[in-house]
Design a protein around this nucleic acid. Structure first.
Lengths: 222, 222
DNA sequence: GTATATTTGTGAAAAATTGCACAAAGTCTG
DNA sequence: CAGACTTTGTGCAATTTTTCACAAATATAC
């Protein structure tokens, strides 16, 4: 294990491998080679090996990787064996949908608290979570050990919320507001623009001639 | 305009630029330089110019880019000068959030109708849209020229909804249900798993020391 | 109108990422 | 147990993407 930089795309692919390994594990398959795994997720075999190589040596020459072993290793690397507390800020339509979104639980993410600046929203309940006044955020982050903040407020308020989260010590922000947040270097922001998912519909369908000029997506991701 | 390949990341950034230009336009600012624009979206100025350079020459030496002109050019390139009619199926928390999600409008996507199978939901209104009975879907698709269907129903009902959309002639489906849809080849499906966006966080949270080894994310991407 | 400032567009350099290819390690067959 | 396969891990090459840096173009100040 060298001290080389790890591409973020490698991390994305690790999640893809993990998902595939989980499937394989259910089917009671014991081992898999990098080329078989690569084929299943549309990637080069060398890519698979190189990605894993950033984190150690998991394979056996001549026979490949033990599926359950590799799965466990990836879960550890990716933090899938842990759970995290999440706060949702903004209890409008989107925010309240996120509070009760069942998918988070499956990924070890527990929404433990939610906030809104609007007095009319405070006290409302969504699936066991009661909306708190926005001013309570810093205290709650510390008391409830919030690791991730989800911003679901209008774009114009997003930066202010981000500042508050950062000041309270949150280092991971998922931003649903369609705006660019500026945060310190140590804070990681993921932007989700729900309309982004529809963008490919408009760009690629409207410009079929140009789409041939666009480099294909590489990993399972975006 | 050369014949060079266009990185997919460039396309993503174009959407980011466009969003920023729309903001600037609202503020009645007339021109912007690549470095100013870059600063606003956390990118190198050369990156901005090179991205635009794939599609033509839009700037004026010494003064920069005319915001409205560049905005119009990007809208054309990205197919944003066209609009699409959208139907939302499922009027639960997520569905009702999507019906009123302001981001869609900005991307030329008009939610013109919404459906639910639950009799109790029918007739409810969300931002000007009245929930229709699911049975009305085929008729509405034709009458309202629906191009895109958004599935926001529980996973177990998603396939049935997809079948109905396809049968009605919809060729683009955005699926928020955490399940894999099977559809004919000519139908384009985009899956959105909201928890996917949170996945990379678990890695950073569990490996704070390693995070310095990971290359920074580039754009609003991924 | 000349000199000084900006700012674009773009080759070329640098950096990052992916793919090749092969030695080394392990497996399998008879 | 020898020889033929298989498959890993990784240095290195190829490709892709980003950044630098500078000539050319335009703007501004006086």
């Amino acid at each position: 294990m060298s001290i080389k930089k790890i591409p973020e795309s490698t991390i994305s692919r690790l999640f893809v491998y993990l998902r595939e390994l989980s499937e394989l594990s259910k089917l009671n398959i014991r081992t898999i080679s990098s080329s078989e795994l690569g084929e299943r997720v549309n990637l080069n075999d060398a890519q698979v090996r190189k990605d894993l190589g950033y984190f150690g040596q998991f394979g056996i020459s001549g026979s490949g990787y033990d599926i359950n072993e590799l799965k466990a290793a990836l879960e550890k690397i990716l933090g899938k064996d842990k759970t995290w507390n999440v706060a949702v800020i903004g209890a409008g339509h989107l925010g309240s949908a996120l509070i009760t979104y069942p998918g988070f639980q499956q990924h070890g993410l527990n929404v433990v608290t939610a906030f809104d600046a609007d007095v009319k929203k405070i006290g409302k309940r969504f699936g066991g979570i009661t909306i708190q006044p926005a001013g309570e955020l810093p205290k709650a982050v510390k008391e409830k050990k919030i690791a991730i903040g989800i911003i679901a407020v209008p774009a114009k308020d997003a930066q202010e919320v981000a500042n508050s989260l950062v000041k309270s010590g949150v280092e991971c922000i998922l931003n649903f507001a369609p705006t660019v947040l500026s945060v310190p270097e140590n804070v990681k922001v993921n932007n989700v623009d729900l309309s982004r998912a529809l963008e490919t519909f408009s760009y690629f369908l409207v410009n079929p001639a140009l789409s041939g000029r666009v480099n294909k997506a590489v990993s399972g991701k975006k």
